[in-house]
């Protein structure tokens, strides 16, 4: 009875939401939005702080944000404060997991023993995944990707090793150290910006030419820090979740 009632309520609320949203005049279909009416256009033209001619890949110099990747320029430059917050969210989640699972020792075992091919094959793939992860967060300002996906790839490489090798262990202290240092450096970078340019997290380095590897000021630095931090945090979460068997 209770379940049926909940179901009915869910359907009712869903229908109302659906109808309500489609009745909103301002809610335009995809492609019909006038970008000039919203904040997006300024991000595309990179002219938030002043007039700016057309942005040309590989030629335009010293823009307010030198990132060729539009999404990165928003995430790590215009709205970098949100990213600092999201990094903190992940930090907290990992911390919460480690507080909850802190009392557990040992690790869970799967019912299937990894065979020789899986063990050896994973060892071959492991460094490749690591390098790919690092590549992705180093090139976050140029190509799709960035600190979060790059860090997740690093953690996935560790997960692979855990799954492929029962005897695989990592020293979690090293990852905690990386996590703490990378987080502190991100905040410190913001504070340096506050001292040098007067604004927290401002891009105080030269932004260089759009599309060059060494460009976009502090964006690649931030992404490397985020990548290391996300990688070590997710590794910590994986390690904690694999705990459980009291030895």
């Amino acid at each position: 009875m209770k379940k049926a009632l909940a179901m009915l309520l869910l359907v009712l609320v869903g229908t109302l939401l659906f109808m309500g949203i489609y009745a909103m005049e301002g809610f335009r279909p995809y492609g019909e939005v006038d970008l000039a009416q919203r904040v997006s256009q300024a991000y595309i033209d990179k002219d938030v702080t002043g007039e700016n001619p057309e942005v040309v890949y590989g030629i335009s110099k010293d823009l307010e944000t030198g990132s060729a990747n539009l999404v990165t320029s928003i995430i790590v430059n215009y709205r970098s404060f949100d990213t600092l917050g999201e990094v903190t969210v992940l930090f907290l989640s990992a911390l919460g997991v480690s507080i909850l699972f802190g009392s557990f020792k040992g690790r869970l075992r799967s019912r299937y023993q990894p065979n020789f091919i899986l063990r050896t094959g994973s060892k071959v793939v492991f460094p490749l995944i690591l390098i790919m992860g690092v590549y992705i967060f180093i090139h976050g300002h140029l190509s799709p990707g960035g600190g979060f996906p790059g860090g997740s790839m690093i953690a996935s490489a560790i997960l692979l090793m855990y799954l492929a090798d029962e005897a695989f262990r990592i020293r979690i202290e090293g990852f905690k150290m990386t996590e703490g240092i990378a987080g502190s450096l991100y905040v410190l970078l913001g504070l340096v910006g506050l001292t040098l340019a007067g604004y927290f997290l401002s891009n105080f380095l030269n932004t260089g030419t759009v599309g060059a590897l060494f460009s976009a000021g502090i964006i690649p630095v931030v992404y490397v820090l985020v990548g290391l931090k996300v990688g070590s945090e997710l590794t910590g979460i994986i390690t904690d979740f694999l705990k459980g068997e009291v030895e």
Partner: peptide, 10 residues
């Protein structure tokens, strides 16, 4: 924050 005026920055 970051030196961008609202509504573009925070």
């Amino acid at each position: 924050i970051g030196g961008f005026k609202p509504p573009f920055g925070i």
